[in-house]
Amino acid sequence: MDAAMLTALGALLASPVAAAAAVYGSRGATRAAREGGVITAYDSLTAKLVAERDKAEADQSAAEARAAALELEVARLRLLVTQLGGTP
């Protein structure tokens, strides 16, 4: 075998190896991109849930304050009815 024949055989053997490496590298890049997208989506979902929870807590506080104000109003009206001679 001469040098040209060895070079041709080397090229024939190297091309499938190079193709396999390219496919494997492409799969790795696709997987990394997919996992990156999942992490980004998770972070976005977490941020939305935290914002929703904060809003719900604020709404609950406002509702509790409103309920306390209404209870005071009911107590005031009962006192007024009693002072006027009625029965609450």
Rank of each mutant, 00 (worst) to 15 (best):
A47N: 12
A41W: 03
E57Q: 09
A8C: 02
P88E: 09
P16S: 08
L79R: 14
T46I: 07
T30H: 12
S44A: 15
A69S: 13
G25S: 07
A69L: 10
R66Y: 03
M5E: 15
Y24R: 10
S15W: 02
V74C: 01
L80F: 06
E73H: 02
A58H: 04
A3C: 01
V17F: 05
L45H: 08
A63H: 08
A19Q: 11
G86R: 03
L13I: 08
A51H: 03
D2V: 07
K55H: 07
A67I: 10
R34I: 10
L77N: 08
K48M: 09
A33Y: 00
A68H: 04
A14M: 04
E73D: 06
V17I: 15
Q60L: 12
V81D: 07
E64I: 04
A11F: 02
E57P: 00
V38Q: 08
G85L: 07
Y42M: 11
R78V: 02
L45N: 10
S26A: 14
A47I: 02
Y24E: 11
T30F: 13
T82W: 12
L6W: 07
A56Q: 13
V17W: 02
R34F: 14
S26C: 08
G36N: 08
A63G: 05
L13C: 04
V38I: 12
D2L: 07
L6E: 10
G10V: 01
S26T: 09
A8L: 11
M5R: 15
A47W: 03
A65H: 03
T82S: 15
P88Q: 06
